[in-house]
Design a protein around this nucleic acid. Structure first.
Lengths: 122, 122
DNA sequence: CAGTATCCTTTATGATACTG
DNA sequence: CAGTATCATAAAGGATACTG
């Protein structure tokens, strides 16, 4: 069996990478990892996320089998999004990235200041 | 000490997340994790990556202290990019994502086909 | 409530040409 | 070789209005 080569553009792995390389998807998945959340609640929870982008992000995540959508026949309708088992396995590795970011933000910012100070006229 | 909240737009952690949520950055970092590589070699190694995007990506990675740039005074000049210790710690967690993608691509594709089959007129 | 549809602006990216 | 500069275009995203 051939190992996929993520450096080739026609590799399906890169499609997955592209989806994950989506800041909204990462943040949505992170929230859903803690339990089911309704549409508007997600929207309010993630600062700067527009309705359009949320809708689009959720649709992609659902299509990829990472998130489950359940509409309840109330009036008005309520829709609950939850993470799937597959999505959960992904969210765990993505969580590692968030933790890295939180742990190393100081180093990164320091590097940025050094960089900006040395000519590299921003 | 306050824990950063990645869901707030003004959180520096989200800046890091945004950088990582960049498919080219992920791919470049992945290649550099295996050893130093010159500019044009990187360009050829990553399918679909234009000179402009590579240049931009490398500049960002360097500014964040994740990648080191070293110009050698040959004629013509050769520039070698290498991963920094900080970059290496990140690349290890990012590598987990690539592995996830390669391991689960089949499930994702199957989910996509199911999704597309059920109305959801693409 | 949970979206969709449309329009419009901004941003990202590609192509090309040029330089130390 | 390793870029930068410029222009053109495509894609992403926001605002607003509307719907089941």
């Amino acid at each position: 069996m051939l190992a996929p080569n993520a450096y080739a553009s026609d590799c399906p792995t890169r499609q997955v990478l592209d989806r994950i390389a989506d800041k909204w998807a990462v943040l949505v998945l992170g929230l859903l990892a803690d339990g089911p959340v309704r549409f508007n609640r997600l929207r309010k929870a993630i600062d700067g996320l527009s309705q359009k982008m949320l809708s689009q992000t959720l649709k992609n995540l659902e299509r990829d089998g990472l998130v489950h959508r359940e509409a309840k026949a109330t009036v008005p309708v309520t829709v609950e999004y939850s993470i799937t088992p597959l999505g959960r396995t992904l969210s765990e590795t993505v969580e590692a990235i968030r933790i890295w970011a939180e742990s190393n933000i100081a180093d990164v910012q320091q590097a940025q200041q050094r960089y900006d100070a040395i000519s590299h006229h921003s």
